[in-house]
């Protein structure tokens, strides 16, 4: 490759890295900018560095509660997904039973279902079940909407489990469920981690479901909290920036630490 084209390629890589990082950098700056420093340009380094935005948002705007709600909702949906999707994925990959193709097609169709299209009925259903304005009312449909993708991914993962392993367990007299718990689950542990991470990521990011289901300020997750803050104090840029950071920092940190598992999960299913 010629020198010029190599340099050109590096410039392209760099430009798009800037495109990715600039907005994040912008929010970081805005979150520690003091009010007196507000109009010195979006890219000027803030001085003095001021953490009062974080304090205000955390203690006065309820973000210490929102983050707990986000955690509870995301952990709840992730648990439900991790408990149910691998079971089904295993059955679709390794077991023979009547109606298998039909049920799998039903789940497959769910891959494309948009949350806004079920909300019209879901809202009334949750009301009838007494789940409106509760965290569990977000957790259940959230997990259900994540299931098609999760089952699809788990089926791919389970297909790689060697049949000999299953046969050996059966010969040893293990029941199907014992085989699943003692033989299959330990083998697919990396896949389970990927599944859990992705389910957690998507639940953490969800906005429409909690927006519709939860009215009580004390139960809102971070996404709804941040959007409300923007609407209410349209001029508190420092506060909104701090809120945004509180909303994405945990998930960004998780991604950076466990990048490999994330990537494996996202590209599973897609590339096969």
């Amino acid at each position: 490759m010629t020198r010029t084209s190599r340099i050109l390629q590096h410039i392209v890589l760099l430009v798009f890295a800037l495109y990715a990082l600039m907005p994040i950098y912008l929010v970081l700056l805005a979150s520690v900018r003091s009010e007196s420093d507000l109009f010195s340009g979006p890219l000027s380094l803030p001085w003095p560095i001021d953490f009062s935005n974080f304090r205000r948002v955390w203690f006065e705007s309820g973000f210490s509660r929102f983050i707990v709600n986000s955690l509870m909702i995301s952990v709840g949906s992730t648990l439900l997904v991790v408990l149910t999707a691998p079971l089904a994925g295993f059955a679709f990959a390794k077991l023979k039973f009547r109606g298998k193709e039909a049920v799998f097609a039903l789940f497959l169709a769910g891959l494309v279902v948009p949350a806004p299209s079920v909300i019209v009925a879901l809202y009334g259903d949750l009301q009838a079940l007494g789940l409106l304005n509760t965290r569990i009312g977000v957790i259940l449909p959230q997990a259900a909407l994540l299931l098609p993708f999760s089952i699809f991914m788990m089926r791919t993962v389970m297909e790689d489990v060697p049949d000999e392993l299953l046969e050996a367990a059966v010969i040893d007299g293990a029941t199907l469920f014992e085989t699943y718990v003692k033989v299959v689950l330990p083998v697919v542990r990396p896949g389970l981690l990927s599944l859990a991470l992705i389910a957690f990521l998507f639940s953490w990011q969800e906005y429409l479901l909690p927006l519709v289901v939860i009215q009580d300020e004390a139960l809102k997750p971070l996404t709804v909290g941040a959007a409300t803050l923007q609407g209410r104090y349209g001029v508190d840029y420092g506060g909104i920036a701090a809120a945004g950071i509180i909303a994405f920092a945990p998930i960004v940190a998780l991604f950076l630490v466990l990048q490999r598992s994330f990537t494996r999960g996202l590209t599973a299913g897609a590339v096969k």
């Binding site: 999707a85 079971l87 089904a88 039903l106 259900a144 299931l147």
Partner: peptide, 9 residues
């Protein structure tokens, strides 16, 4: 094995 997911979904 499929039932829990199916019920939720």
């Amino acid at each position: 094995f499929v039932l829990p997911a199916l019920l939720l979904y």
